[in-house]
C-alpha cells in the first residue's frame, strides 16, 4: 500500500452516486406524499422505487469509497475530513432530538399546568373552557383524546432496554480495542455481540409497543402523552435500527478483513453513532419513562 503524500491535496474524481441519491430521495418523498394523500397504489410504487434506489446508491457509493480507501487513495487530511463530517452529522442529529425533547419539556412545564389553571393564562383557559381539568402527567388532555389509557412502568422493559444498550456500548468499545490491537477474532465476536444486543433491544421495544397498543390502550392518539412518547421513542428506535444495520455492515467488513489497526474510520464512525444512540436513550429513559 503506497502511503499517499500528506502534503498534496486530494480531490476525488467525479461520481454518479450523488445524483442517484438525490433522485432516490426525491422519488421516496414523492411516493410518501402521494401515498399520504390517499393514492395508495401509485404512492407505494414510487416510494418503493425511491427506497430501492437509495439502497442501491448506498451500496454503490460506499462500495466506491471502500474500494478507494483500500487502495490507499486517501491521505490523512481526507481522513480528518471524513471524521469532521461524521462528527457534525451526529451533532445535527442531536438537535433533531432536541426539538422533540424541547417540545416535551415545554408541554410538561407550561402547557399542562396552564390547562390545569395555573397562571393568568391558565385561569382563563381552565375557568372558561375546561373547568375541572387538573394537571397530571401522563395526560391526554382535558378532552381525554384517545380514551383512557395507562402508561407502562419504567422498571420493566425500559430498564431492561437501558441495560441492553449500555452493555452494547461497552461491547462495541471492546471490539474497537480488539481492532486496534489487531485481534480479529475478538473484534468479530464482540461486534457480533453488539449486534445481538441491538436486535434484542429492538425486539423488546416492539413488544413494548404491542403491549401498549393491545393492553394499555396507549397509542399515537392518546393525547399529548402518546404523541410525545411515540415520536421520541419511535425516532430513537429508527436510529437504533439504522445503527444496527450499519453495525452488521461493519461486521461483514471485519469478517472480510477490511480493517487494519491503523485504518478503520468506518468502524469508528459507526461506533460513535452507536454511542450517540445510547446517550439519546439515556435521556429518553430519564425524561420520558422515569420522570
Amino acid at each position: 500500500m503506497s502511503q499517499p503524500n500528506a502534503n498534496v491535496y486530494y480531490v476525488p474524481h467525479n461520481s454518479r452516486w450523488p445524483i442517484i441519491a438525490t433522485l432516490g430521495m426525491f422519488l421516496f418523498m414523492v411516493g410518501a406524499a402521494v401515498w399520504l394523500n390517499g393514492y395508495d397504489t401509485p404512492g407505494k410504487i414510487i416510494l418503493t422505487i425511491g427506497a430501492l434506489s437509495i439502497i442501491g446508491m448506498m451500496f454503490g457509493w460506499f462500495g466506491n469509497v471502500i474500494h478507494e480507501s483500500m487502495k490507499g487513495t486517501f491521505n490523512s487530511q481526507v481522513d480528518t475530513s471524513f471524521r469532521m463530517g461524521m462528527t457534525w452529522f451526529i451533532f445535527s442529529e442531536v438537535f433533531f432530538f432536541a426539538a422533540f425533547f424541547g417540545g416535551l419539556f415545554y408541554i410538561r412545564t407550561f402547557v399542562v399546568p396552564w390547562l390545569g389553571g395555573v397562571g393568568d393564562k391558565g385561569v382563563i383557559t381552565n375557568g372558561f373552557i375546561w373547568q375541572g381539568f387538573s394537571a397530571t402527567w401522563p395526560t391526554n388532555g382535558p378532552e381525554a383524546v384517545g380514551g383512557s389509557f395507562t402508561s407502562g412502568s419504567p422498571w420493566g422493559i425500559p430498564l431492561l432496554n437501558t441495560l441492553l444498550l449500555l452493555s452494547s456500548s461497552v461491547t462495541v468499545t471492546i471490539a474497537h480495542h480488539a481492532l486496534r490491537a489487531g485481534n480479529r477474532k475478538k473484534l468479530i465476536g464482540f461486534l457480533g455481540l453488539t449486534i445481538l444486543l441491538g436486535i434484542t433491544f429492538l425486539c423488546c421495544q416492539a413488544y413494548e409497543y404491542w403491549e401498549s397498543y393491545v393492553h394499555l390502550n396507549m397509542t399515537l392518539h392518546s393525547g399529548i402523552y402518546g404523541a410525545t412518547f411515540y415520536i421520541l421513542t419511535g425516532f430513537h428506535g429508527l436510529h437504533v435500527t439504522l445503527g444496527t444495520i450499519m453495525l452488521i455492515v461493519m461486521w461483514l467488513r471485519s469478517v472480510r478483513g477490511h480493517f487494519t489497526p491503523q485504518n478503520h474510520f468506518a468502524f469508528e464512525a459507526v461506533s460513535w453513532y452507536w454511542h450517540f444512540v445510547d446517550v439519546i436513550w439515556l435521556c429518553l429513559f430519564l425524561f420520558v419513562y422515569i420522570l
Binding site: 408541554i107 390547562l115 391526554n140 415520536i231
Partner: peptide, 13 residues
C-alpha cells in the same frame, strides 16, 4: 397519523 401535538384539547398546544 393522528397525533395531537398542536391540539390543546389533547394537552398539546
Amino acid at each position: 397519523f393522528g397525533t395531537n401535538f398542536f391540539n390543546a384539547a389533547a394537552g398539546g398546544d
